[in-house]
């Protein structure tokens, strides 16, 4: 048995060594130059004596946990606990902001969204198993109200000043091409009470989305985020309250269509007040907004703080530049006069 295993694993090991030898210089070079450029950090280089030999395959070990592993994925997810089974369904729903088809996870009556994170160069050591793709999947709960807002908004068929129609859940959740919505029936009835008006006729319930309730719910979400962000790390902690509010709203905006919900929220919070104070600032604000809008399409939540910071920095720099220009103009004017 040992000989057979050894002979079977020899070619992969040899190929592995060749790959290491041929790729190591390239990878090391790129990593060094990349890190130097990005971080501007040049740590102390210690001389390392000896060398590390290439790895050998250990598939000869009997009954290893990684036997038969296919396309492994590294996932961090809420702990299902020992009392409940962790069996979940992947369901296809429309993303609440973009409307694109997106996979969600439905485990133990909880709806989860999936995101992944990957460094430019990275791989995994998983015990005695190597995975080339260094991607980390993060699965976090998502409030089903976000998912349901676009569906309920369409379902009420509002026209003009009319408040719209009351409708039953099985009618609302019937979305063409997306049968997954029906699987959420059990949780939707409970979670949509907070943003809907409900009429009970006999044993039937009819729902209609209520804009004022949605706004109140959004403001509650902003409050929760405003309390959480300063505790993340020192960079968030030193932010001004206004910047924290803007960060909170931009994170919330990842799950809201701009029209009507994000606009409704910004109007309520008076976040566009800069446009009223002056044309120069309005122009800067306009540029900032357009850039943020473009970047919102490409980046996800965890990057949002950085994006917002970039936008604000650009705005500040621009304002300073304009201020400098104004000073120059005054200087020239005074020289002309004298």
């Amino acid at each position: 048995m040992a000989r057979v295993c050894a002979s079977l694993t020899f070619p992969p090991a040899l190929r592995f060594k060749i790959q290491c030898h041929s790729h190591s210089s390239f990878v090391i070079f790129r990593v060094n130059s990349l890190y130097s450029q990005i971080y501007g950090y040049r740590g102390k280089e210690q001389s390392v004596t000896g060398s590390v030999r290439a790895f050998e395959s250990s598939s000869a070990k009997p009954m290893s946990w990684c036997d038969g592993v296919l396309e492994p994925r590294v996932l961090v997810a809420p702990d299902p606990g020992t009392d409940r089974n962790g069996l979940g369904q992947m369901i296809l729903l429309r993303h609440p902001k973009s409307g694109n088809a997106t996979q969600y996870l439905f485990v133990n009556g909880i709806l989860l969204e999936l995101q992944w994170f990957k460094n430019l160069y990275g791989s995994w050591f998983l015990g005695d198993y190597i995975t080339e793709d260094g991607r980390l999947y993060l699965s976090t709960p998502i409030d089903p109200v976000f998912i349901m807002l676009p569906i309920f908004k369409e379902a009420r068929m509002k026209k003009g000043d009319d408040l719209g129609r009351f409708r039953q859940l099985d009618e609302i959740l019937f979305v063409d091409g997306y049968p997954g919505y029906m699987q959420l029936m059990s949780i939707v009835e409970n979670c949509m009470q907070v943003v809907s008006e409900i009429i009970e006729v006999g044993s039937s319930k009819f729902f209609r989305l209520d804009d004022s309730k949605v706004l109140r719910w959004l403001c509650y979400k902003v409050c929760q985020l405003k309390q959480t962000l300063p505790k993340l790390d020192k960079n968030y902690a030193v932010q001004s309250e206004k910047d924290t509010l803007i960060d909170a709203v931009s994170i919330l905006g990842e799950y809201l269509k701009e029209e009507p919900w994000l606009q409704l929220l910004c109007n309520h919070l008076k976040l566009n007040i800069l446009e009223v104070t002056g044309k120069a600032q309005a122009n800067a604000e306009g540029n900032n907004n357009s850039r943020l809008c473009n970047e919102l399409q490409e980046q996800s939540n965890d990057k949002k703080g950085t994006t917002a910071k970039k936008g604000r920095q650009a705005k500040k720099v621009k304002l300073e530049t304009e201020s400098h220009n104004i000073k120059d103009m005054f200087s020239r004017a005074s020289r002309k006069k004298s």
Binding site: H23, I28, S57, S64, N119, Y121, G122, F125
Partner: peptide
């Protein structure tokens, strides 16, 4: 372990 480099290998190894 998340490494800061790419290892062109998917499978068991004597890590």
């Amino acid at each position: 372990h998340q490494l800061p480099c790419c290892v062109k290998h998917d499978g068991p190894a004597s890590v």
